[in-house]
Design a protein around this nucleic acid. Structure first.
Lengths: 349, 349
DNA sequence: GTTTAGCACTCAAAGAAGTCGAGTGCTAAC
DNA sequence: GTTAGCACTCGACTTCTTTGAGTGCTAAAC
């Protein structure tokens, strides 16, 4: 299924034009705007061929052509030229990532807002996966009346806390003791590498508090379930309303209600099949409800390790070149920013 | 500007009907459905009077009447009958608040979702104000390479953390020392009652770490700025798309973009002028952009002290009776739930 | 063989005209 | 004070027409 150079030019013209105007593109428009040196009639002939091969389609007779999903895929794989961020866009991003970071959560949230603002799509940013980090600090804080706050700080910047019930007989001093033992034993270990032997040691040192330990280990274990504890930041949802395809309320409703379901989102973000920026077009997304959308996602890392994903969800007719560049650029900047925060900070306190 | 009983009945009928159907209400409909014992002609006469007094208005000649903002205000103040939650609604709420709370943030977020689901409005839930709590635990955690994590746990359940830069010469041990002094001195104090003398004492004990202390106190001080550190949870935004008035994309855009600005939201939530549930109708909201919305908000408390606000934002044509009941009920339940978590947990560790 | 001018044809979108009906205000009778 | 009756209004909906962008096909030109 090879396309000759003129067909490629025409397909490219149709896609560029359609991305720009959201209107079906006719042969005259192409002849006029893209100066291919041939008449509309010739272009019509080529378009008929392109349609037969499935790269473009006609909403109805007597309308221009619009790209098919296959057309977009060809475009993304072969035709698209790299988008160079404008100085304003670069500035906006640089500004965000050179300012001081007060809190990872805030950084992720701002990343989502930027992503959405720059792409006019719905942005999704996943927090670093718990599994990927190692414990930096563990602390139990008494919260009165048989409650304690279990706080976990991971070296990838994630902070988790959870209220747990404890026997009323446990004192603040006990909690401090438990905390310090846990800290000594666990810090530096990743969530996954906590060995049975280690736990045994802890039990030995804290025989008196076996019951509380059970509770804590239960929490630690549950944070292992992938996705269970990840937070997902959404950004600038209202930006998608600027896209003509979302002037249909039903579509907006579908998309928004989906975006509120964290587990579904986590699934979507897991659809990364190759390093770098991944593009899923329409039906390529394995989620029935949003097969009339496209998704551009990538994975960011901390300390060289993949930590979480981010990306955008928008209409199939999106400016892939631009969106891909922006996702790529933001991923890199986010990784660097996280890196900078924890550079040199090995896994030992 | 007194209304006689029949006028009240008619106004009530118009508002109930309009809330239900979102269509202008005609005299015949009222005569048919609300059996006031008078003919449509009589109702027409009364309606003309009500219109002259400004309680209702006509979108155009030959249309029925719709309530004016003034009409809604009168309704809310005098006519409205209390809405009794359905068993299903009560169940839904009870279920949420009797289950174990793992994390205040989650509780607030779920509250927002419930609020939105039950009212079909945009829900807004503010986290407990920092100023309202007293310190329960303060901890500095070394994060490698001149960074530390300052963590503050307040007795109203709020947890704050912030990355700060520290001199590279400070060791983990130093941080532990500072933490324990801060803890000893500050715990039990509210953010506001930290006295100068107290700070002086701390400085004396930690002369060596004066520089780090400055940084920390700066953070503590900045968390005093009202609203600066409060998080705001939004819930079920897509629910408002079910309201016919939000089928106009522009309106949705206005509302959503506003909801993404935390500072504006905090301002809105501050518009509470009396205890209990507050209702702001249309132009009564002091925010230009959403004067075609209404707002129902209330303040929840922890330990008898007001801690934060929550509420909904929806079309002026909202079911005030129902929304008010739900906001009231959720406020109370949230307060009780927070109470339960921290009951008996005075301000001392 | 490829390209293009010419032309008949198609069809959604926009406009114009007409109809419908819910609702009103007014008047006169009860 | 209430109500039946009636003429009137006007948005919403339907139908019909027009418009124009765009196509595919054919035959001539390159």
């Amino acid at each position: 299924m090879e396309l000759n150079s003129r067909q490629q030019q025409i397909l490219l013209a149709i896609i560029n034009e359609y991305i720009d105007t959201a209107e079906p593109v006719g042969s005259r428009t192409i002849a006029r705007k893209y100066r291919l040196g041939v008449s509309p009639a010739t272009i019509r002939n080529e378009m008929a061929d392109l349609e037969e091969m499935g790269f473009i389609e006609q909403p109805h007779t007597s309308a221009g052509r619009i790209p098919s999903e296959r057309g977009y895929r060809y475009y993304v794989d072969y035709l698209m030229q790299k988008y160079k961020l404008s100085p304003e866009e670069e500035d906006l991003i640089r500004q965000e990532y050179t300012s001081k970071v007060r809190d990872i959560g805030l950084l992720l949230q701002r990343t989502g807002q930027l992503l959405s603002q720059l792409t006019q799509c719905a942005a999704v940013v996943q927090s670093p996966k718990i599994e990927a980090g190692s414990y930096k600090h563990i602390q139990l804080i008494e919260m009165g009346a048989g409650r304690a706050l279990l706080m976990l700080v991971l070296d990838n910047g994630m902070i988790q806390h959870r209220l747990i019930d404890i026997p009323a007989t446990i004192t603040a001093g006990d909690l401090a003791t438990i905390s310090s033992v846990l800290n000594a034993k666990l810090s530096g270990h990743t969530v996954e590498t906590i060995k049975f032997t280690l736990i045994k040691e802890i039990y030995l040192e804290l025989t008196r508090h076996r019951h509380v330990l059970d509770l804590i280990l239960e929490v630690l274990r549950s944070s292992l379930v992938p996705g269970a504890e990840d937070k997902i930041y959404l950004g600038g949802l209202f930006n998608i309303l600027n896209q003509p395809e979302f002037h249909n309320i039903e579509k907006v409703k579908t998309l928004l209600s989906l975006l509120e379901q964290e587990s579904l989102l986590a699934n979507l973000l897991a659809q990364i099949s190759k390093p770098g920026v991944n593009v899923r077009i329409g039906g390529e997304i394995s989620c029935q409800a949003i097969q009339d959308c496209s998704m551009v996602i990538a994975t960011y890392g901390v300390g060289g390790q993949p930590a979480g994903s981010l990306g955008v969800l928008g209409p199939i007719r999106m400016d892939y070149a631009k969106v891909i560049s922006i996702v790529d650029y933001l991923t890199e900047n986010l990784s660097i920013a996280l890196e900078r925060i924890f550079k040199g900070g090995g896994s030992r306190i």
